[in-house]
Amino acid sequence: MLKKAVVLLSSLLVTGSLSAHTLWVMPSHYVLSKPKSWIAVDASAGNMTFVADKGIALTALKMYQPDGSAKVITDVYQGKRKSMADVQLGGDGTYRLELANPVRFFTSYELAGEKKRLMANKAERSAQLPKGATNVETVQMRSRNFAYITVNAPTNTVLKLQGEGLELSSKNHPADAVANEEQQFVFNLNGKPQAGVKGILSFDGELYRNEAGRIEFETNSEGRFSFTPEQAGRYLIEASYSADMATDVADKVRESITYSFEVALP
């Protein structure tokens, strides 16, 4: 089981599930010693961590190589319960495996007492809204699901923040996460630490435990959350942030991420 999470400063625990089904990508190996190795990738959405329930499309699955260049993954299969991919890595360094949805815009409104919606941003919606529409609101949405794989020597290029949307950085390199050592994370929105990001930390095997052992958290004023794992294994962070943020294209923003990672034996 995990030790009680240490949330820096005065972060508050939050309640409730972030979503009915959580999507994740999970490589068969997080650390490898042999260049040109192959890995298998599982992707699914489910109610329990790493318990496959719904297969998902992998057309957007990419591998970012140690130099930052992107490689589209073509050896994929979408099943009923989970989807799979075979990926060959290159030389030494850290890779980023990512399944991301592009920015999308949903405009909701009411017409004659009924709630409706359309796919359009603020600049586009006026031409599509029917006459008499009320309570009009546009939400900008984006999601990312990712993991890191390291071959021999860890590198940092694919860990750098891009400055767009919700991103995660860590005090520890992903290849260096070890049981009984504190893991500290910072959640960033558009390149800056963000308070109020709500998340759930979970770990593999909850199907076989009476207590799931999940930890719910909310980032502090510096965007931080930390915990100390008592045991090695595979972990998952799912987090989201939503807020009023009026721009030329939206009234609100909703961002979400899932991050799978491995904690090694001491």
Rank of each mutant, 00 (worst) to 15 (best):
V249Y: 05
N180W: 12
A177C: 11
S202P: 10
S17E: 10
L18A: 07
A133D: 03
P229G: 08
S240N: 13
L99T: 11
T59M: 14
S17K: 13
V197S: 00
M84N: 15
F225N: 04
P130Q: 14
F225K: 05
L201A: 15
N121R: 01
A239N: 02
N190P: 00
S170Y: 02
D67M: 05
A239H: 02
E218M: 13
F185Q: 02
A133Y: 01
R117D: 04
Q184A: 15
T138R: 05
L12C: 08
K252V: 06
P66I: 00
G55N: 10
S44E: 08
K198S: 15
S242L: 09
D176G: 05
H21W: 11
E222Y: 02
A43H: 01
F105P: 03
G132Q: 05
N156H: 07
F146G: 15
Y30N: 10
G68H: 06
I39W: 01
F261K: 03
N172M: 09
A153L: 12
K131I: 15
S69N: 12
A45C: 13
A52K: 05
A43S: 15
S19F: 05
G196N: 04
W24C: 06
A177F: 07
Y64F: 14
I149P: 00
V186G: 01
T59H: 11
S169A: 14
T59E: 11
V41F: 02
T247G: 09
V51H: 06
T155N: 09
W38K: 13
L166P: 01
N145D: 12
A85Y: 05
R117E: 13
D86P: 00
Q183E: 14
F106P: 00
T219C: 04
L13C: 12
N220D: 14
L13S: 13
A239L: 06
R254T: 07
G93A: 15
A45D: 13
L12R: 13
S143L: 09
A195G: 10
D244I: 04
S221F: 02
I56F: 12
A45L: 01
G91A: 06
G223V: 00
L166C: 04
A147Q: 03
K171Y: 06
A20I: 09
F106E: 08
L97Q: 06
R234V: 11
R104C: 04
N47I: 15
G163M: 09
L168N: 00
V178T: 15
V186A: 01
V197N: 01
Q194I: 00
E211P: 11
G113P: 02
L18Y: 06
S28R: 00
Q194V: 03
N220S: 08
Q78A: 15
S170L: 08
D53C: 09
M141G: 01
K116Q: 09
S19E: 07
L99N: 15
E238C: 10
T138L: 08
T150S: 09
S170H: 02
M119A: 12
P66K: 03
D204W: 05
S11E: 02
T49C: 14
G93H: 03
T155F: 03
L201V: 14
F225A: 05
G90H: 09
N121M: 06
T107N: 06
W38M: 10
N220A: 11
V31N: 08
G233S: 10
P266K: 11
L236M: 15
Y235W: 07
V103D: 03
Q183I: 14
Q128I: 05
R125V: 04
A70F: 08
V151Q: 01
